[in-house]
Structures are given as C-alpha cells and as structure tokens.
Amino acid sequence: MRPPALLRLGRVFALTAFALLVAPQGIAPAQSSADPLAFDAPHKRITARFGETNALVTFAVTNVSRVPVVIHDVVPSCGCSVTTFPAKPWTLPPGARGAFSVATDVRGKTGSLLKTVVVQSSAGARQLTYQVDILEPANPADRARNQSLAKTDRQAVFKGDCARCHAEPARGKLGKELFSAACGVCHEAEHRATMVPDLQALKRPPSRDYWLQWIAHGKPGTLMPGFWDKAGGPLTDVQIYSLVEFLSSR
C-alpha cells in the first residue's frame, strides 16, 4: 500500500491533469500588439557532463495575440548549435502553444558557454539566450567518498559536490531528457556500479505504481535516494510523473 504522502501526490497529479483537460481553450489575452509571442523564459541555464556529445535546451512559446503568427526560422548564434521545431514555416494560431529545442555540441568543451537564438517571425525578431555549464569529471577518489556518504544518507547525492551531477542537471527537464540527466548517470553509465540495477533487465515488468514509489521515495537499505522534492530530492510532482510515463512506455 502506498504511503499517505504518495497517495496525496497521485491525487494532486490526477486533479491537475483533469483541470488541464477541461480548462477553457479560449484565446489568451495579448500582452501587447508588438509582442504577440510569450516565451516560458527569455534565458535558460542547463548543465552537461564532461564527455557528453550534446546539451539540449527547450523553449516553450505561446501566441497570446488574436491573429496567427508565423515563425519562419529559429537561428542559433553559431554552427555548433542546431534548432528543431515543428515545421518551417511554423504557424501558431491565436492561443496556441508549442516548443522548439536547441542542441549544442559540447564535445571537448569545458566551463560555461553562453549562446543565443533568434526567433524570426511575422511579428519580428526575438532573441533568447541560454547558458550551458559543463561539469568537471569526478575523479575515482571523489566517487568512492561520495558512495561512502550515500551509504549512510541516501539523500546525500543531492547535497554539496554531489548535487552537480545528481541534482543540477535535472533542472527544467521532463520525460526522456530528464531520465538521461537524472537517472542515466547511474543506471546507464558506461561503468555502472554493480549495486546499481539495469532498468531494462528487471525480473518483472514494473507498473506505474512501482516506478512512482521508487522514484519518489527511493529504497531504504540501498543507495537509491528519493527524488521527490517533498522527500528531500530535486524533482517536482510534474517531473516525477513525466519519468513515470516515460519509463512505463519504454
């Protein structure tokens, strides 16, 4: 039987999903005639691990005007970044919401990278920025010390230096992207520790409740921490359920 807190989490998610389904789909009020496109953020900050190929950032956009807006192109600031969006040209009807992503090649790079993209539309041009922080590789001595800490406190992976690899990369991510950032670092690592299970070779097919319990609260007596922010982890309710859906559909 699931703990009361987890049951409440499930009810909150279900009510939120229902509210989104039944909410009126009317036209959102325009901010101004000169700014018909509203973005979820003008600047984003993401992290990538040393040795990764690409860092992916996603921007959501809503047409808050009363007329269609055509996005002709999304142009990155350099050749190491590639943008992906639904169509070219991409028409957003009044009140419509969509998203586009930018993949930046981070091979051989260190430190922080500041990048821009320019959204070219029938309403004009809009510049957005994002920063990629490339994490330094952990040395074997640090890894052994961190594993020792985790044996006494499973939530230690979200604190101090450990947070750079286990908490910070999860910011703003959902579904498959979140799995790669928060789960794959251990479960799909090239040199996966023997005590870390291969999630694609489990003895029995997991249910959604199984994934929800493991992700939100972890497993006492092991190194598996609880990722739910109300249990001391870094993930919100929405992020946890996006992982549950992703893992259940693989």
Rank of each mutant, 00 (worst) to 15 (best):
L6G: 05
Q200K: 14
Q25R: 15
K219Q: 15
Q213C: 11
A30D: 10
G108S: 04
G26S: 13
R204S: 13
A30I: 15
L135W: 00
R97Q: 12
L178F: 02
A48N: 01
D133K: 01
V118L: 06
H191R: 14
R11E: 14
A167R: 11
Q147R: 07
V132R: 01
S112M: 08
L128V: 03
F39V: 06
S121T: 06
G79M: 05
Q200L: 07
A60S: 12
V64W: 05
L149K: 06
I134F: 00
A34F: 08
T84P: 03
Y210F: 13
A5T: 12
S122V: 01
A193Q: 13
M224T: 05
P93I: 09
F246M: 02
A216K: 12
G98W: 03
S65Y: 11
P24D: 04
K230I: 09
A28R: 13
C183I: 12
A103M: 00
L15V: 04
A216T: 15
A19S: 10
A55G: 00
K88I: 12
W211G: 00
A55L: 04
P24A: 03
T116M: 06
G218K: 07
H166E: 05
L199A: 02
F179T: 02
F59N: 01
G79Q: 07
T47S: 14
A167M: 04
A96N: 07
G26Q: 04
A189K: 01
P42M: 09
R192T: 11
P169Q: 01
Q131C: 09
A19D: 04
D105Q: 04
P86D: 07
T194M: 15
D73A: 06
V64S: 08
Y210H: 09
F246K: 06
I134Y: 00
A41S: 13
F85N: 09
G232F: 12
R8C: 02
G175F: 03
L212G: 12
I134Q: 00
A48R: 01
T84G: 01
A5V: 11
D133Q: 04
P220G: 08
K109N: 00
P169C: 00
I215L: 15
T222E: 13
L135I: 10
A141T: 08
D153P: 02
C78I: 02
L174F: 15
R45I: 14
Y130C: 03
T16C: 02
L6A: 07
N146H: 14
G108N: 10
P68I: 03
G184V: 07
G184W: 07
Q239K: 12
E136P: 01
A167F: 02
P24L: 07
L247D: 11
A138G: 12
G95Y: 03
R66E: 15
I134M: 00
L223R: 11
I46G: 03
G79P: 05
D35E: 15
K173A: 11
K159C: 04
L178P: 06
S121A: 07
P137V: 02
R171D: 02
